[in-house]
């Protein structure tokens, strides 16, 4: 069960308490997140919605250990990550988090195979073991036949599937996706959402996704809206500017 009232019993996978994030722009201070609470259990598919500038990316960055909050705590699978050193946080990220971005962010000079292999270079896996993992991941996203292609030789939808393969190849604890369909046409977007849904249903993955697209949000089990720096439960259709 996903909760945003801070009353979760602590048995979940992700537990966020009283999260504040302020940015300083010159003398002005912007409170982006204010007292945000969140509890997410293993195997859930959560969509975050909210107007542009409401702090969705900021929240994902904090959950993924890319950035540090002004105050509050984030606990993932028992690890409190807001007090880790930068080096520890990097190692934690490599083990637990898979990122999917709007712009795919593949390395253009590497083949699909090599892009997916990147996170595995940081593990102790042998070359043969890495190959097996990469093939499994590319198989899940249905691009085994494209593994020698470079990103520029792939369509946007295919690039995003490679990025998803990269996010799951090291068996991350959870995936963070920031507008994964934001740059795709309807058909490709549907395919990506179908793929993410399948990862949750069939592979037991936990996914937290930011999206503007109500159709994409419908695929998620829970839709949360960012409002005045905190999360409120809602539906895919609610709160979207007409």
């Amino acid at each position: 069960m996903v909760r945003v009232d801070g009353e979760g019993n602590g048995g979940g996978l992700i537990r966020v308490r009283h999260l504040d994030k302020k940015y300083r722009r010159g003398s002005e201070e912007i409170d982006v997140l204010q007292g945000l609470n969140l509890d997410v259990e293993q195997g859930e598919f959560v969509a975050f919605m909210g107007p542009s500038g409401s702090g969705k990316t900021t929240l994902l960055n904090l959950l993924g250990g890319l950035d540090l909050p002004t105050s509050g705590s984030i606990t993932v699978a028992g690890d409190e990550i807001t007090h880790m050193s930068a080096a520890k946080l990097t190692a934690w990220r490599a083990r637990h988090v898979g990122f999917v971005f709007q712009m795919y962010n593949l390395i253009p000079v590497l083949t699909a195979f090599a892009n997916v292999e990147l996170p595995l270079l940081l593990t102790r896996l042998s070359k043969a073991q890495r190959r097996r993992h990469v093939e499994v991941a590319l198989g899940v996203v249905g691009l085994l036949d494209r593994m020698d292609h470079y990103p520029r030789q792939l369509s946007g939808g295919q690039e995003q599937r490679v990025a998803i393969a990269r996010a799951i190849v090291a068996d991350a604890t959870f995936l963070l996706a920031d507008e994964p369909t934001g740059d795709l046409d309807r058909k490709s977007a549907d395919e990506i959402m179908e793929l993410l849904g399948r990862l949750v249903r069939e592979h037991g993955k936990t996914i937290l996704m930011v999206t503007h697209d109500p159709r994409a949000a419908e695929r998620a089990g829970v839709v949360l809206h960012l409002d005045k720096g905190a999360l409120v439960e809602g539906s895919a259709a609610a709160g979207i500017p007409a």
Partner: peptide
């Protein structure tokens, strides 16, 4: 710049 950031996101350390 963007690619280096992606490497760090994926888990490459600063020293790496």
């Amino acid at each position: 710049t963007g690619e280096l950031a992606v490497l760090k996101t994926v888990g490459f350390s600063d020293l790496g």
